[in-house]
């Protein structure tokens, strides 16, 4: 049952991402991406990471994508037809890279990989919080400083002369 849900979510994720990267307008790409991030959040939940799933919805789909939408609407871009669309000559290096990645994947799968037994263990939030604040407390401090620097930088870039 859970496996079926996982594969459906994987399909939604990949199709949503594909629609996002081929969308003709940035706003549509953002909306497709929000859909695929919701699917990704549900996958995180299935993988036993409820906290990360909640953060994915709140921070990614809720905050970052809305920030993108705000900026796109604030910029009043000239009519979207004027922005250069990727032509086929723009797509082929990307397609070549995608083919390389998929080919590497196929080689890895076809070669005789040691079968890893399936099965996932849930990680309780208590263990997560314990590891976060006991073992990686310094990282939390560094991340908070990084967010402060980003705030100062954004204020500096956004100021009006």
């Amino acid at each position: 049952m859970e496996a079926t849900v996982f594969y459906i979510l994987a399909a939604i994720l990949l199709i949503g991402t594909l629609c996002a990267i081929t969308a003709r307008q940035a706003v549509r790409a953002i909306v497709y991406l929000v859909v695929s991030f919701f699917a990704l959040a549900l996958m995180f939940y299935l993988l036993g990471a409820p906290l990360i799933a909640a953060f994915e919805v709140i921070i990614y789909a809720g905050a970052i994508m809305v920030l993108f939408l705000f900026v796109i609407m604030m910029l009043e871009l000239e009519s979207p037809e004027k922005l250069p669309k990727p032509r086929f000559s723009d797509w082929w290096p990307a397609l070549a890279l995608v083919v390389v990645v998929v080919g590497a994947l196929a080689v890895l799968l076809l070669s005789h990989v040691r079968a890893v037994p399936p099965g996932f263990t849930d990680i309780p939030v208590r263990q997560f919080a314990y590891t976060l604040f006991k073992q990686y407390g310094v990282a939390v401090e560094i991340v908070s400083m990084q967010l402060l620097f980003a705030l100062v930088g954004a204020l500096y870039l956004g100021r009006r002369k």
Partner: peptide, 25 residues
């Protein structure tokens, strides 16, 4: 959940490839 880890890695690498293609295209 009985999904092998390799399938998750496949989904992740396909998504990564799509993102890479998006940046380049």
């Amino acid at each position: 959940m009985s999904v092998p880890l390799s399938h998750i890695l496949i989904v992740a690498s396909l998504m990564f490839a799509m993102g890479l293609g998006c940046v380049i295209a």
